[in-house]
Design a protein around this nucleic acid. Structure first.
Lengths: 360, 360
DNA sequence: CTGAAAGCGCTAACAC
DNA sequence: GTGTTAGCGCTTTCAG
């Protein structure tokens, strides 16, 4: 008993099916389904009901082509494995899915991959409505080109000028670590994870380093004595760094590891040498990795999952059409609202890996 | 100097632009770009060159609509955070991206979410060409409906009848653990992570359990003495389970933890009680988690990242058009090729957490 | 408030 | 081999 042709209900229903079934035009169905204005309240109810009964939903591919909007958010990360990144992604994914967005994940192995994504011919704007960029440096001009193409941008871990971001205050992280260690009486200190080279940049290691040094200074400690070791933010790097530190004739009594993962490696090295963390040598990390409590690592906690969620929310918000109701009454342009910059809380979590300086 | 209209090169070029610029029809451009047959070799070269010069690439949204194919693969997981899942995803993502597929990630909190994805109106087939399902049970009829909709399916962690899969032999996992412990002289054993209820199913805990028991039996050990504790496969669960075991008047001398993460929790509990793993009580896990070596956990290793990569490859292979060149010479139907079922290798990794039974 | 019609950019028959 | 021409299913002016 169909309206137009007698096709049985085997195929997936299209907007036309719904239109004829509801006795309205496709345009009306389209409006009704998307909550656009200019639809009689009763009409809308009817259409929605019919659509529901028929199990109709707009074909995403078709609406993408027609509307140029994708209902998709892309998460860009250096690599998916690794606790930090996957946790952030998990937080973001939950929010996006909840809001009806598909979540695309792309791993950026090298800076090259980034430019590929950003290149004209990748059709970024045809694939996604917004980008959540995690711990990837986006140059200002890249960022602008992204938004000019109609793609929203939010970063977590570092800020991108003019765009929303979620991050922690990395200098304070360093300062908290320094305070804690100094209060325990330590004076021979070292850092694992420091970026030895460019000491003026604004990247995470540098900021934490600066904060740490600053913290020491404010306690009247000489900052030149702090030994630095690199460490690629992985377990291996941490272990090697600690080994190097311990091989020195006069090893530190406390070390600040810029990530928990490196701290784990450092702790392994201590164990291997029969030293016990918190007694023979104090170590403090950053993150509060899920595993930190297993090895009783003192750390500066950040709640990574919530960072991802917050970033996703900012992004979704940024993607809402510029204005809803009251178009600026007077002729003034709406003041270019400052993009939200969330500085997430951090917190010292004291466990067994730090203790009073051992008297020698 | 354009061919048709004088629009400057400001807008992204379409297939028509390329066609007129190359002096051929859009159909030819389409064929040439996609490597389809029936294009003169010289024409193809020319078209590709022109397209390259113009920075042209097919708009994904448009080709999805027209061709019904998405060049997108969807990874379905219980949750993204967690070492196991994120590692599998990382492996899959790398392969998919390499092959030119976009990677969609969807977290399945509950069984409900799965059915949502699978429901008609989600237009699964309009969003993705294939599914990699990680540790999610897909019912046979669900699986069939998926492929009937033209979406390929591969699972990792468990097999789905009639579809490619990547998994390990979980019974052997249990057996290896049993062998190791028995060889060290242990006789009072326990399992952490056992599924106490449905002992006949084919899920992972059950299989490992069965293998473990079987292994003991083949050494002539009574299987009824094995204490079972649940444990949700997380650190907390492992800790609680170990606590329960130790509170028993006659605690085991060795325990088989069905995952490394639970083993970590168990080790915490041992530490808290001043017991040392491998001396006072032996514990063996499964996975070879990246942190297992940090706590010297003996474990049955599986190489998780490669599982994800392998699954992605199987999927991509399965999505290739049924046949390329030599259509079956005689009238026979091509034998319905058995879907590949990869049983990945596992390996005992002995570290410090297991040792000879302590003499009391 | 609603409908008609013109595309969105590409692919896939079908002719030549 | 190559060109022509319908659509894919939806959104969006533009009239009423």
């Amino acid at each position: 008993m169909g309206t137009t042709n007698g096709t049985s209900r085997s195929k997936r229903s299209t907007i036309e099916d719904v239109a004829s079934e509801a006795g309205v035009s496709v345009a009306t169905v389209s409006r009704a389904m998307r909550g656009l204005p200019n639809v009689a309240i009763s009409t809308r109810a009817h259409v929605v009901a019919v659509a529901g009964r028929m199990g109709y939903t707009a074909d995403p591919a078709a609406s993408r082509l027609a509307a140029g909007t994708t209902k998709t958010i892309t998460v860009v990360i250096p690599n998916l494995s690794g606790w930090y990144f996957s946790t952030v992604v998990a937080g973001a994914e939950a929010v996006c899915t909840e809001a009806g967005y598909d979540v695309l994940v792309v791993g950026i192995g090298s800076q090259k991959d980034l430019s590929r994504i950003l290149s004209e011919q990748y059709h970024l704007e045809r694939r996604t409505d917004g980008l959540v960029v995690i711990d990837v440096a986006v140059a200002p001009d890249q960022a602008d080109s992204i938004t000019q193409r109609g793609v929203a941008l939010t970063s977590v871990g570092s800020r991108t000028a003019g765009h929303p971001s979620v991050r922690i205050d990395n200098e304070t992280v360093g300062r908290i670590a320094a305070d804690h260690l100094v209060e325990l009486g330590h004076e021979r200190l070292a850092i694992i994870g420091a970026q030895k080279d460019n000491p003026l940049s604004f990247d995470v290691p540098t900021l934490r380093h600066r904060g740490f040094i600053g913290g020491l200074a404010s306690h009247g400690l000489a900052v030149d004595d702090v030994r630095l070791e690199g460490g690629n933010f992985g377990v291996d790097g941490g272990q090697e760094a600690m080994a190097a530190l311990l091989d020195h004739p006069e090893p530190p009594t406390a070390v600040f590891s810029m990530s928990d993962e490196m701290a784990f490696g450092a702790i392994m090295e201590l164990n291997d040498r029969g030293l016990v963390p918190g007694r023979d040598l104090s170590i403090i990390g950053v993150d509060d990795h899920e595993f930190s409590r297993v090895v009783a690592l003192t750390t500066v906690r950040q709640s990574v999952a919530s960072h991802g969620a917050a970033a996703a929310r900012l992004l979704i918000e940024a993607m809402q059409p510029p204005d809803g109701q009251g178009a600026a009454a007077d002729g003034q342009l709406a003041a270019p609202i400052e993009p939200a910059e969330i500085v997430a809380p951090i917190e010292l979590v004291v466990r067994g890996s730090t203790g009073r300086v051992a008297q020698r």
